[in-house]
Nucleic acid binder design. Sequence first.
RNA 1: GCGGGUGUGGUGAAAUUGGUAGACACGCUAGACUUAGGAUCUAGUGCUUCACGGCUUGUGGGUUCGAGUCCCUCCACCCGCACCA
Length: 973
Amino acid sequence: MEYNFKEIENKWRQFWAENKTFKAEDSSDKPKFYGLDMFPYPSGAGLHVGHPLGYIASDIYARFKRLKGFNVLHPMGYDSFGLPAEQYAIQTGQHPAITTEKNLARYREQLDKIGFSFDWDREVQTSSPEYYKWTQWIFKQLYNSWYNVAADKADDIANLEVIFENEGNNTVKAVTDQVEVFTAEEWNSFSEAEQQKILMNYRLTYLADSMVNWCPALGTVLANDEIKDGVSERGGHLVEQKLMRQWSMRITAYAERLLNGLETIDWSDSIKEQQRNWIGKSVGASVFFKLEKGEDKIEVFTTRPDTIFGVNFLVLAPEHALVNKITTAVQKEAVAAYQKQANLKTERDRQADVKNITGQFTGAYALHPFSGEKVQIWIGDYVLAGYGTGAVMAVPAGDQRDWDFAKHFNIEIKNIFEGVDISEGAYTEKEGKLTNSDFLNGLTVKKAMKLAIYEMEKKGIGTGKTTYRLRDAVFSRQRYWGEPFPVYYKNDLPYLIEDEQLPVTLPEVDAYLPTEDGEPPLARANKEAWNVFEGDRMEYNTMPGWAGSSWYFLRYMDPKNEAEFVSKEKADYWNQVDLYIGGSEHATGHLLYARFWTKFLCDKGFISFDEPFKKMINQGMILGRSSFVYRYTILPVIDGNINEEVLSFLKSNPLYVSFDIHKLKNIKEKFNDVLKVKKKELEDTFNIKVLELSLEFNARLHVDISLVDNDKLDVEGFKNWLPEYANAEFILEDDGTYICGSEVEKMSKSKYNVQTPDELVEKFGADTLRCYEMFLGPLEQAKPWDTKGINGVHNFLRKFWRLFHNDANEFSVSEGEADKKALKTLHKTIKKIEDDLNRFSFNTGVSNFMIAVNELTDQKCNNKAVLSDLVVLISPYAPHICEELWVKLGNEAGSLSYAEFPTFNPDFLVEANYAYPVSFNGKMRFKLELPTNMPKDEVEKAVLEAEQSQKWLDGKTPKKLIVVPGKIVNVVV
RNA sequence: GCGGGUGUGGUGAAAUUGGUAGACACGCUAGACUUAGGAUCUAGUGCUUCACGGCUUGUGGGUUCGAGUCCCUCCACCCGCACCA
């Protein structure tokens, strides 16, 4: 009766599914624990070994929490709307729902094999109408809300309308694009269309003409977080700026709360910092500069209002609205030329070209708001139109870029810092005192800032202001496979579909491409294809991928509710996600949007917490190890003209050179023999005279890692792999093997380095895979996948199994008292495992199991009590084998999942009983580490023993001992 | 440039509050057994030295009786942000 993992795992997998062993109850006397994984997008490639890493960790923790007496919610679902299924649909015409369903089944099969304790009754799929009904409903709530700054929360738009009717908008403090002020009378006289247009400026989701990131290759707009370095994150296609009428989310209303909320959650510093950067808060002042001529004012934003007297010039972005108006006739041509040149540069070029200082004087002057001095107005592309007001006050003394600009164009630099030399560069420290600054003279930066703002506000020339880098998020996509909007248009005005009519399901279309005139695919759907159709037409855009994932953690609490997206009661019970595990690549996408929606839903009273994920751990990426073969072409030196036929023959018959030989420099010399043979072959075949043959390195090619074992290529398998390799010829090592080169890269289908968990589960079992993925190293660290050590982990499970069996392989454990040694091992392990789990150090957990099993094996321990506790301890890591042993130990099947986690008994714990000198109050003492709960007489005995032992450091001997209750013994010398 | 992180044997890595650095595993070496295996068991394995010993946590310094751990300097790599006013 060897450890037959296949039989065991099949048996328990089935049992757990049939008995719904991991079903979560919605109320309980036990404390609750909500452990969540980032749900996957079910791609066609299936799971690779990197996916389950986080799932295994969270599953271990969820199982641990069950054993610790928690009522655990541990669900799983699918983020099933998305681009790949749609692109597959465009290519093949197959409906994305079919592809998705197929992929989903494959994912489920793979997940099931690994033995996760998910409550599958709560599964959600963002692409199912039952689910996206509520995504649409939340969209409606956002549409019907505005951000009330006075109350610092979202409020009903109906309340805003009441205010407008009675007071106009002058008293309203809101986050809005509305700039015009109107009175109650004016409001009431506006037409419906005019009123709606104004309300749109307040809604939390709104329709507006805005500059968007348009990706022609994908045929859709993208949000800022979907773009990296000027190209789309998915596919790397070029993205351009385009003015389009799009739905947006007013996430900027939540900027400050999204920032402050970070203080209350237990996330990694790196993710928090990324979000802080993304939000990009700057505190400072907005200052108005009057023009020398005309009535216009230039508004600038500065974080250093204290340096206001150091202003030597202003710089406007080339696109700034006032540029054309203020430019003098003399400068007109030069300015226009500069604008044109700046316009031609793409965003990318502009960023890459930061070292070149460019700019152009407009000829115009502004007046310094305090001194009234004339200040030159320049334009320069280092000022960005999209940030702040698109204009800066240049203080060369205090800002390096301004300094560089001033030096480059020979503009005078005024020093405003006392005793600081600015001849070699700007002084950017925020220390020291100001000079040449009128009423700010002698003040520190901090004080001067306050006073400057105070004076500006008093004089009405500026005001304290905070700006954010965060932009509102574009919410529409010109795609098919996403949530339809619950929106229709009548006379070109948007209206919402009634709640009772939700969901608006995706209509069938005959093709998934945009229409000929560039409309989204949904524009292809005729009236009958829609399940709901109102007004003149429906909204043709669909929602972006992050819509469904912004609230899915709430749906798991109440997945079947047909009346609400989640009942208040259940949301109150399950509350925040206690532990969220997933990748860090969602830092400025999903994780920000989910926080935004949670805050909104909390504002509206639907839930009572405003941060979704209390603690988060980001598992590191598992990288693949790619293998390569090296292709060489033989090139002839022929007498006379090169024969095309010969050339193409040689090209289609390359040689594949083993890596170790490829590395050699004198490769040609080494293969003279081979080349001689080839030469003869050629001459015979083509009846030509070949003078010489040479080898030329041609390409390094990825080879499927399943054909490579320990860097050795399965040569026959390689020939059969792809047709082009059928007649491959090799140059092998002396021992007749072909060695592949290797490199660590991201796992990807195109690199043929994807390792699926299936084959490992087949070969070693799910329990081994689970332990091994944890054993690999710290969860949060990126690491290359490597199966070298998997045998060691598998052996541990086999040893574990053998602890319960006698030499004849029969199950055999002994009843009765356990001996002290075994108990010591057990309790040491309990303590360590509990500590490991509490600090999410799953890798040391596996190590500690190995130590325990090794020790008990050495002790020949087969005591039932000890082994029972051990089974409970190991079960989160290796649930199948533990369930099997648990039942054999006489327990009810399935009860292991809710057994009691063994309690650590310090009686059996022996700490080190060595000592070392410690300096304390100037006297040399010795510190002796002893068990924490050792009785006093035993302490004295231990100290005596320690005195005589050789373990003292430096040969020093203690003279006096002090017993510190509970913990440490100090010995005075 | 700014921010975050990492640096320990041949390899993956342990070391929870400053206290025997390298646990555990892989790999390697030698041996045992054998139905000859990707099996099992035993011993060894940081570097250096015949040995006693000496050296050792990226570099250099500091604090301390004692530093992988705390402080400062520098170096290397990874991630994020970036003419953000």
